[in-house]
Design a protein around this nucleic acid. Structure first.
Lengths: 327, 327
DNA sequence: ACTAGTTATGGAAGCGGTTCCAAATGAAGG
DNA sequence: CCTTCATTTGGAACCGCTTCCATAACTAGT
């Protein structure tokens, strides 16, 4: 592999000059530039990214910390990030966390290891200690679908989304709405519960606590949650599930009981995954791609002076009406 | 940020000694080691990844070049890669190609830029020029779901998969099987066509060329392909689609014509995406996770001496029988 | 007590770039 | 033709680590 010294020698100039040509510095005469360019061409030279990073103290890449990246949400956010990163010629370093301790090691390392210029954290909750470490290490971070008071955050208004879904069902005349929520250890679940209750109270009705259950966000969670309600004797006329997968799981269970959707049971999901459209599932759509793109945009824009923090940017989800609510 | 010099000064030793402690070199006395460790602790020191990379000429990260990474296939392969990479403490650098020229720039840069120690290319076809460049640059590459004679490759036996699917349908008594293939510019499509024809000829029958159509691998491709066949007057009793999405698209079209699956029409997809199980779609499953894991394993194992090339490793897909073929 | 052979340690050189300073060159002005 | 000032250029120093070589310190053998 040719180095910058080889190029300099071949072109009969100093290394500084070669560097200047490479970095579009104006202080180079046209003739010299030409000679250097020729040498570069002949040697098929390309600067060594790592060496350059060491000298400039910029890696030209951003890290993305995501939990299991199967989920549709992450993929879409990632797509948004990637589009922006590519446009600005930044690489993407993927930190996937599957287990809890992975998250810890990553968070401890990333700010000091300096393999990336900035970090986008998706969904994962950041503790104060880590947040402080990022600030101390001057490593710009931006949270997507997660919130921390001293870090810039991009969040979706979960309460609003839940309210939209619930209002939609109430508006259709349903009064006994089951709520298949996610586990309460997630902030999203707590917010959605608020939205659910708010919609109810605004309509002058009371939600039935016997119709609320908390499960994992996946399909089997939905199935089990629905089964649990069913065995308990609950017979709602509609369901609001905290994820499309849960909704699908619930539908599967209902099918075994001969309950038809939407004839016998209206159902609203959350996420608008690919399958939702296919199954005609009414759901809440979150601006995932947009959030990813904006996160990258803000991170890259703010790389020089670390991004300031002026409260989270809140995105509003929207209701997507399909057949599963009988419209 | 503390550097190795700070640590050395604080511990009252030379930088070499600190480095030895960090890299588990045995030539350090227990007392010194202790002192160094203490200094590291106090300064909250962590080696600078980029500087280390420059000195060792290893980046401890591998690149993954994938086309649009929405697709299930890529995600699964990526999961396999990630698991192995994490286990061996390697980072993953993501190169996502959305447009053709992106692929070109990436392929031109990656081997010389040296931001990664090795590269896994998923699905994308590599031209001879690039292959040669990788060899010249001594950058280990491994192809997944793609083949090149001078590069180690992990491929799925597409002909076999198509044969499995076709045989399944023939075995159920279907004689007029429509084949919604992918575009012939993909190697996979050509191989699947072979498998389709082989199954037919082994059963002593002839496929009807009027029942074969080539479309994009996505849902609208399937829909359009099916519509095209339908308008042409084709009335098959079964369909083999080259992707689950195409199968789903076809089903959607058939629904508009009042054709029921599986009662009026049996259908087999390809890929076994999440939705396939849900919809009860009989399909061909490819060992995606395994391929990703094995690719990473081989790449990392072979990093020192660049991987040899002894013909592609061929994986056999399997038939997953569900309701869409009426079983 | 002295030598030979280990083991431990300090620190310079090098990885491949960028950047800054000083020197050289050139242009303009008197 | 000589100054002055701006532009161009070479190259040393540096980014933060590893590695290797030379030296120091210690052990053991005679």
């Amino acid at each position: 592999m040719a180095t910058i010294y080889d190029v300099a020698k071949k072109a009969g100039v100093g290394v500084g000059t070669v560097s200047r040509v490479l970095n579009a510095n104006v202080h180079v005469s046209p003739q010299t530039r030409e000679r250097v360019l020729l040498a570069i061409e002949e040697l098929d030279y390309q600067p060594h990214a790592v060496a350059r990073s060491l000298a400039t103290r910029r890696t030209n890449s951003i890290g993305v910390l995501v939990p299991f990246f199967t989920r549709h949400f992450f993929i879409e956010v990632l797509r948004g990030i990637q589009d922006v990163a590519h446009r600005t010629d930044q690489g993407i370093f993927l930190y996937n966390v599957q287990k809890h301790d992975q998250k810890e090691t990553y968070l401890a390392r990333i700010p000091v290891e300096r393999r990336v210029d900035g970090l986008i954290v998706i969904t994962l909750r950041i503790r104060d200690g880590h947040a402080a470490k990022f600030q101390k290490g001057k490593l710009p971070v931006i949270l997507v679908d997660s919130y921390h008071p001293i870090l810039p955050s991009l969040v979706v208004d979960n309460a609003y989304g839940a309210k939209l879904a619930t209002e939609h069902l109430l508006g259709l005349g349903h009064q006994k709405i089951a709520f298949l929520n996610g586990l309460m250890r997630y902030h999203a679940s707590r917010a959605r519960k608020d939205g659910f209750e708010e919609a109810y109270s605004q309509s002058g009705l009371q939600p039935d606590p016997k119709l609320v259950v908390e499960t994992e966000f996946d399909r089997s969670g939905g199935k089990q949650g629905m089964a649990f309600l069913w065995e308990r004797g609950a017979r709602p006329t509609a369901i609001f599930a905290a994820s499309d997968l849960q909704a699908i799981g619930a539908i599967e269970f209902l099918k075994t009981k001969g309950v038809r959707v939407p004839e016998d049971m209206a159902i609203v999901g959350y996420d608008d995954i690919e399958m939702a459209e296919l199954l005609g599932l009414t759901t809440i759509r979150q601006p995932m791609y947009t959030m990813g793109a904006e996160a990258a945009e803000r991170l890259l824009g703010g790389l020089e002076p670390p991004p300031t923090t002026e409260g989270p940017r809140v995105y509003r989800p929207e209701l997507v009406i399909r057949e599963s609510t009988g419209c």
